[in-house]
Amino acid sequence: MSTLEDSVEFANNSQPRCACVLILDTSGSMAVDDKITKLNAGLQSLREDLLADDRARRQVELAIVEFNTSVRVVHDFVTVENFQPPTLMASGTTDLVGGVNQALDLLRRRKKQYDDNDVPCYRPWAFLITDGEVSEAEAQTVAGRIREDEGKKRVAFFVVGVQGANEKSLHRIVSEPRMLSGLKFNELFLWLSASLKSVIISTPGEMVALPGAGVWEAV
């Protein structure tokens, strides 16, 4: 007699998706202390770590928006298996507002594609990494946009300040920015990978909070 394991078949539903957009500061100051090199290496670690997880490989989707003097979508949303982070270069000034707006627009578009195609999804993540600062007016604009999108549950928005960032100015954007300890980009991205993996195994009601202070975080 065949076992249930042999005979039962599963419905062919779309894999649920968890979109995460990385909003990366590639202004000139990111060249100082080789921050940009460490950031690039961190992106590779993120890819490798997610790729090693069978579920994450199929369910996590990543995109990259970089901002310096201008804003550029470096990588539109793809599943981890198709994610090829490029080598980013640091130059120019810091158009943080443009970067955030572009990223949130990108997320909105992706979410609509999920909905149009009946793809189940988790609440998307946006992950801003910057070593810069914003003026009070800029902070207000960007904070307003983030609040609006978070209020409508469109995104969970996280900010990580890197050496040189103006922490006070980041506090104007979100209530709880995190600060990177030294140049622990690698640890930061491994932690992000672990966090995304915990989202995709979460079940209803499991508000996935960020796992406690990672080893990358300055306290």
């Binding site: 078949e9 599963f10 419905a11 539903n13 189940p120």
Partner: peptide, 16 residues
């Protein structure tokens, strides 16, 4: 529920 119902209609998947 993702294994035994067909989404988005949420109809029972017969082979399950």
């Amino acid at each position: 529920q993702l294994l035994c119902l067909q989404w988005p209609e949420r109809l029972p998947y017969e082979p399950f």
